[in-house]
Every structure is written in structure tokens, then in C-alpha cells.
Amino acid sequence: MTRALPWAVAVLGLALLVTGVAVSRAADPPGAVVYGGSYAPLPPADTAYESSLQLTFDEVSVPWTSGDMVGAGLAVLGALVLAATGGWMLGRRSARPAGG
């Protein structure tokens, strides 16, 4: 194998990571964090069949769109590729015989 292959895979992992962050940031509408805690009724939904994932942390609600989930998946995939490439490069370096 050439020395360029691990670096090309590392660049691919970095590109996946950056793309995932960009997709996730682009999917967030302005003011995506909704502060809850009110007993007022919620406005009616626009569609009858709407699916969403909602995380709640101490009266702060964070809605996740499909773009957020795709971006998070790409970022995790990129991080896994970078971790695997780093282990591969470190393993190849330590497997070399000590010159003597």
C-alpha cells in the first residue's frame, strides 16, 4: 500500500465530518431552541401526520429535523473514519521493525 492511501482516507473522513456539521447547521431554522414551561395550549399542527423527535432538557425543548439527523449521521461516520484511520496509521508505524 502507498503512503498516500491513509491520508486520502483521513481527508475523506474529515470531509464527511465537515459536511455533516454543515448539513446539520443548514437544517436548523433560526430560533430552533424553544423554551417551554408554559401551560398555554400548543398551536395546531399544519399536517395531520407529522413525525418529529423532540429532546427536552429542563424546560428547554430542542426539535430535531430530518436534516439534523442526516447531518449528525454524516458527522459520526466521519469521526469513525478518522478514528479508524488514526488507529491504522499508528498500528502500521508501531509494527515496523526497530532498525539496528
Rank of each mutant, 00 (worst) to 15 (best):
R3E: 08
A4Q: 11
L5W: 11
L5N: 04
L5I: 13
W7Y: 15
A8K: 05
L12M: 14
G13I: 02
G13H: 01
A15Q: 06
L17R: 05
T19V: 12
G20A: 09
V21W: 13
V21H: 10
V23L: 05
R25F: 05
R25T: 09
A26G: 07
D28C: 06
D28S: 14
D28M: 12
D28Y: 08
D28A: 12
P29M: 05
P30H: 02
G31I: 05
A32M: 12
V34G: 02
Y35D: 07
G36P: 00
G37S: 03
S38W: 07
S38G: 14
S38N: 10
S38Q: 12
P41C: 04
P44T: 06
A45P: 02
D46M: 13
A48I: 09
Y49K: 04
E50C: 06
S51T: 14
S52E: 15
S52V: 06
L53Q: 10
T56K: 07
T56G: 04
D58R: 14
D58P: 07
E59V: 11
V60W: 03
V62K: 00
V62I: 15
T65W: 02
T65K: 00
G67I: 09
D68V: 10
M69P: 00
A72T: 12
G73V: 11
L82Q: 11
A84Q: 01
A84D: 03
T85D: 01
T85P: 00
M89F: 06
M89L: 11
L90S: 10
R93E: 11
S94M: 05
A95K: 01
R96I: 05
